[in-house]
Design a protein around this nucleic acid. Structure first.
Lengths: 135, 135
DNA sequence: CAGGATCCAAATAGATACTG
DNA sequence: CAGTATCTATTTGGATCCTG
């Protein structure tokens, strides 16, 4: 809704040239999905899209996430260069997380997906009920 | 997406108050990600974005997918109303899969993600190496 | 050809306890 | 506060065999 959408000139590699040209893209895609397609990453990125947040703020704002999973999710996002982790050597400790520039570029696509979810969630729900009833 | 049926969406405890309406979207988002964020769904949808395909065509075009996973993935996509399954009573059997209208609407967001993956795959790769080296 | 059924290995997630 | 460390439960995914 608010974020900039990256210009998108590229069509799908559906009609792949028979070369292996977009195998790399497939792999990259698979990779990306393994990263942001997990249970919590998108939620975290979305949250950080609103600005820097501390660990406990994230934990409170993401309903249902366990401490462990938040830690792991943040670690992985940091590893992939999507999130920065800043430790302030105070007592009690304070650690702040923020999106990197790379992380910010993800917000566009995520928003697109978010919008889709918002628009078609009920369609899926209904399709599911119909399908289940038919069994 | 298991041997049994469920693949239930994540249940988020809904706060009574709000006014933010954010939680519903969160639930829907969680839902969507559980569907299309799995290991193969996006690949299958992408493939079907190019038009109707038979089971074995899909299997060949999606490197590394097992028969079982393709079956399960297609079943779930069908259940969610994203894909249609058409059986032709011939011998040997022919089964064709295609996107529904709902499924087609997913292609936009998926393309956005795809483009992102294409554009930033190397960045992630490099960030990862750097992070791992720093440990 | 397009799967269904089983079995098993691996990856993920949650709960709990502990720490600087 | 912001984590680690463990242990366990659940979910996945793959291999293999079987069928109309």
């Amino acid at each position: 809704m608010s974020q900039t959408q990256p210009a998108q000139r590229q069509k799908f590699p559906v009609k792949a040239d028979s070369g292996s040209g977009d195998l790399t893209t497939c792999m990259a895609m698979s990779d990306i999905l393994n990263r942001i397609g997990d249970k919590w990453s998108v939620m975290v990125v979305a949250r950080l899209g609103g600005g820097t947040q501390r660990f406990s703020e994230l934990r409170r704002s993401i309903e249902g996430i366990s401490q462990r999973m938040l830690t792991l999710t943040l670690r992985n996002l940091e590893r992939d260069g999507l999130v920065t982790r800043t430790v302030y050597p105070e007592i009690p400790p304070r650690v702040e997380y923020a999106l990197t520039e790379l992380g910010e570029t993800l917000i566009g696509p995520i928003n697109a997906l978010w919008a889709w979810a918002e628009a078609h969630g009920q369609d899926i729900e209904r399709a599911r009920s119909r399908f289940d009833a038919a069994q």
